[in-house]
Design a protein around this nucleic acid. Structure first.
Length: 449
DNA sequence: TCTGGGGTCCTCCTTCAA
DNA sequence: TCTGTTGAAGGAGGACCC
């Protein structure tokens, strides 16, 4: 999908169409998740500090991400892909590989191109959004083709042309080459994929290590045998928070770690998993990051065990000077726990999934008690109908009243505790009803936040 | 006024047991 | 009993991706 989060916001908010839209964290330490193509023209891009984006594009609309909304659109798109093949490998909410041959949807370049064109039309019809398609004989090349196809296009790399196509491209084009590897290669005088291939496998292994060297050499020759894998098992579960202001108080650091441990266990249990290794992550005031881990004798999903392990790990970390980020994670995942084994040995039963032990609380992530009006989120007003929060502060909230199918709407301001104003679910982006009235076709059961 | 969150994979080092 | 080798596992950090 093209600039997915930003495009989804523009589709649901007519007044933002054709305008610069930036989606990301709006706090003092936020970064850009997605920028619309209009915002990119000002130099705004993903992973850029939000403060920098605001300097570059002060007039842009700045919105917080609405993941539940994007997920509902993503599920529709993934559903379309699964009609083409059983082998669909999602990379994220907005990207996936599809093995067309395995699904017998295509067998040569012509048939693949037909499938690609129809897919783009179907995505447009079902979601109202544009997506780009890259067609090639391997995952690496399909990815490169789809990048070339953006926005709103289709690119096919004909078999036999791969090496010639890759040769002049910068090394950064290849997946797995980031800023550090690019620098490394630049110092060795290697700038393009062609130069990478000429350097030879031994030289690349010497420069970049065994795994990376071999993999990069193969990719430079356009060799990529990685299969499309439909089901991938998670290897770790983690939660982390960056704080608006560094935390200096050791007691507070301990409380935050405990809170993160609770959230992590909540996620772990929701996924029906347990884990053996507990990881504490600390990013200090100077952005230096360290991790400490402890491996238990067996996997656990016990909140008290994870809390205690995280606290022990924290004991070994110097936090004087302040911390800006804390995280707690669990790796070495299993779908049983040490307690299962004990229970089995004793002929007993463990707490059924979903039921919490009486003396523990694993709070689900939730907002504070007072009403929060987050920029970009949907609302409904008794008199003015459906709209979205354009901004809030100083006890007031500004709402623009419009829907995906209306003309750009008017703005009104209310007190934050105005009882006539309530949070609302996102409206579907596509009308399918005979009357033209929006139906629930767009939102997969209306699961959005 | 710098730099999110949730992941995966790799490398290097240390420890420990066979 | 002592020593050297080897491999697995644990731990830490870094690079990369979306």
């Amino acid at each position: 999908m093209d600039a997915f989060f930003a495009q989804a916001e523009q589709a649901s908010k007519p007044s933002l169409r054709g305008k610069a839209v930036v989606v990301g964290g709006l706090g003092p330490r936020g970064v850009v998740s997605t920028a619309s193509y209009e915002a990119r023209a000002f130099g705004v891009h993903s992973a850029m500090p939000m403060a920098q984006a605001r300097r570059l594009a002060p007039h842009a609309a700045y919105l917080v991400p609405r993941f539940a909304f994007y997920r509902s659109i993503s599920e529709q798109v993934m559903g379309l892909l699964r009609t083409l093949s059983p082998l669909v490998e999602p990379l994220s909410l907005d990207e996936a590989y599809v093995d067309l041959e395995a699904g017998q949807a295509a067998w040569d370049a012509d048939s693949a191109e037909r499938v690609g064109r129809k897919l783009r039309a179907d995505i447009r019809a079902v979601t109202g959004l544009t997506g780009s398609v890259g067609l090639a004989a391997s995952k690496m090349l399909a990815k490169i083709a789809s990048e070339q196809a953006k926005p709103d296009g289709l690119v096919l790399i004909p078999p036999g042309t791969e090496r010639d196509l890759l040769a002049p491209m910068p090394v950064r084009t290849l997946p797995g080459v980031g800023p550090a590897t690019q620098n490394h290669l630049r110092r060795a005088g290697i700038h393009t994929v062609g130069e990478l291939a000429e350097a030879g496998e031994d030289e690349l292994v010497r420069l970049l290590g065994k795994a990376h060297g071999h993999a990069l050499y193969a990719m430079a020759l356009a060799h990529d045998e990685r299969p499309v894998v439909a089901e991938r098992e998670a290897k770790s579960v983690s939660v982390e928070d960056t704080y608006d202001v560094d935390i200096h108080d050791r007691l507070r650091v301990g409380l935050e770690v405990r809170r993160l441990a609770d959230r992590c266990v909540g996620r772990l249990r929701a996924a029906g998993l347990s884990g053996r290794t507990i990881v504490l992550k600390v990013r200090r005031y100077d952005f230096s990051t360290l991790t400490r881990s402890e491996t238990l004798r067996g996997p656990t999903d016990d909140v008290a065990v994870v809390r205690e392990a995280a606290a022990r790990l924290l004991d070994a970390v110097d936090t004087t000077g302040g911390v800006r980020l804390l995280g707690v994670g669990v790796t070495g995942l299993a779908d049983y726990t040490q307690e299962d084994l004990f229970a089995q040995a004793a002929g007993g039963q463990r707490t059924p999934p979903g039921e919490e032990p009486a003396d523990e609380t694993v709070p689900e992530p939730s907002g504070p008690a007072e009403r929060q009006w987050r920029a970009g989120h949907d609302v409904r007003h008794e008199e003015y109908g459906h709209g979205w929060v354009q901004g809030s502060g100083l006890g007031r909230v500004t709402v623009r009243f419009e829907t995906p199918h209306s003309a750009p709407g008017r703005v009104r301001t209310f007190l934050v505790d105005d009882p006539a104003l309530q949070p609302a679910e996102p409206l579907p982006l596509v009308c399918t009803g005979p009357s033209g009235a929006p139906e629930d076709a767009g939102l997969g059961g209306g699961t959005a936040a």
